[in-house]
């Protein structure tokens, strides 16, 4: 039997965060920080699949986030809110509560389809040339959104706040935080299990040597398509959550190279190919941004300096390619890995 410490811990966190927000013990500001932490964890873990485990250099993750944000944002506004462009809500507002995650998933699927734009060139292209393709896709997505006047063009898209308010009117709960928490746990589990599966071994084989992997009958094309679509889809999921943030608007200016850079920094700070590293660095980086907020403009002088120094001290990121359980083996029992390794040994 697997030990239940970890699920119990997650449940406890869920109860504390959601309960605290519901009762108003956690104030709006900290709710926002927690929301961004959750979204950043999804983004970092998903980018780590491409940049860490597969060893490619994707620097356009914000583009896929934008697709997810716009698709799910438009969908919820169209379905559940009064809007100038889309008119009255198509469905009864009460349906918003069960259908909200579906809208997020549709956004994620749209983002993963856009991910094909990167996945297909990646059959022939590697390394820096693929980096440029991801960069171009980021620009194309942003530029395409800017040219669509229906959804606000460069001014951005609003209305998600009404959706969230409508949901809160039907039943008052911190819905966004709840779904962010669930999506975050799901994203981490998906990536972890994906990397433990045969497909994940294929991803690692591609990183080590693509030609050799192909010779060992790894279907590199199939694995690349799956990995890119999974990673981009999760980015779209994070985007969908981000679209409904309390600010109530999204604009193409949010999803620039700078956003992509931020995600990349979190990946490399945590360590390439380390899920626990990604989680730690996503939490740490988000908190760092908040702590340094009083510095104003000077914040962006301090943060790069800190990161450069950090790179010089630890050139492999916080955890390198190890997991927390490798650094502190005693945690293994806590996470319930013992039985797994036993099962492997008995094979």
């Amino acid at each position: 039997m697997r030990k239940l410490y970890l699920p119990l811990l997650i449940l406890l966190l869920f109860v504390i965060i959601i309960g605290g927000s519901w009762l108003g013990i956690i104030n709006d500001y900290w709710q926002l920080v927690l929301l961004f932490i959750g979204i950043n964890i999804i983004l970092t873990v998903s980018l780590n699949l491409i940049n860490g485990y597969m060893g490619e250099f994707s620097c356009g993750h914000a583009g896929f986030m934008a697709v997810g944000a716009y698709v799910s944002g438009i969908l919820t506004v169209w379905l559940f809110a009064e809007d100038k462009v889309f008119g009255p809500p198509v469905l009864p507002v009460a349906w918003a509560i069960p259908l909200f995650p579906l809208a997020l998933i549709v956004g994620a699927i749209a983002a993963s389809l856009v991910g094909l734009l990167v996945a297909i060139p990646s059959f022939r292209t590697r390394g820096d040339y693929l980096a440029i393709i991801t960069l171009a896709v980021n620009y194309i997505v942003k530029s395409a959104i800017e040219n669509m006047e229906v959804i606000g063009g460069p001014r951005g898209f609003v209305g998600m706040k009404r959706v969230m308010n409508n949901m809160a009117d039907v039943f008052d709960a911190p819905w966004l935080l709840i779904w962010t928490f669930i999506a975050m746990i799901a994203a981490v589990l998906i990536i972890r299990n994906f990397m433990a599966s045969t497909l994940g071994k294929g991803v690692e084989a591609i990183r080590e040597d693509e030609v050799a992997a192909e010779l060992m009958s790894v279907n590199t094309r199939r694995i690349k398509v799956i990995a890119f679509m999974l990673s981009c889809g999760l980015a779209g999921l994070a985007g969908g959550l981000f679209a409904h943030w309390p600010g109530g608007y999204i604009n193409p200016g949010t999803f620039t190279i700078l956003k992509s850079t931020e995600i990349m920094v979190m990946v490399y700070l945590g360590g390439m190919g380390s899920i626990s590293g990604s989680i730690i660095s996503a939490i740490g980086f988000t908190l760092l941004l908040e702590i340094l907020r009083p510095l104003g403009v000077f914040k962006w002088v301090v943060i790069p300096l800190l990161l450069v120094v950090m790179m010089l001290v630890r050139p492999t990121g916080i955890l390198g390619n190890r997991e927390l359980t490798d650094v502190f083996p005693k945690l293994r029992a806590f996470f319930g890995y013992e039985e797994e390794s036993y099962a492997l040994a008995s094979d």
């Binding site: 850079t261 920094v265 962006w300 790069p304 450069v308």
Partner: peptide, 26 residues
């Protein structure tokens, strides 16, 4: 010289870029 992965150099370069921009701004 420490033999860090090439991608860490790239990230460092990105950071230096942001540093230069915001040093100028501040």
């Amino acid at each position: 010289e420490r033999g860090a992965s090439r991608l860490y150099l790239v990230i460092t370069a990105l950071m230096i870029g942001i540093l230069l921009e915001y040093l100028n701004l501040s």
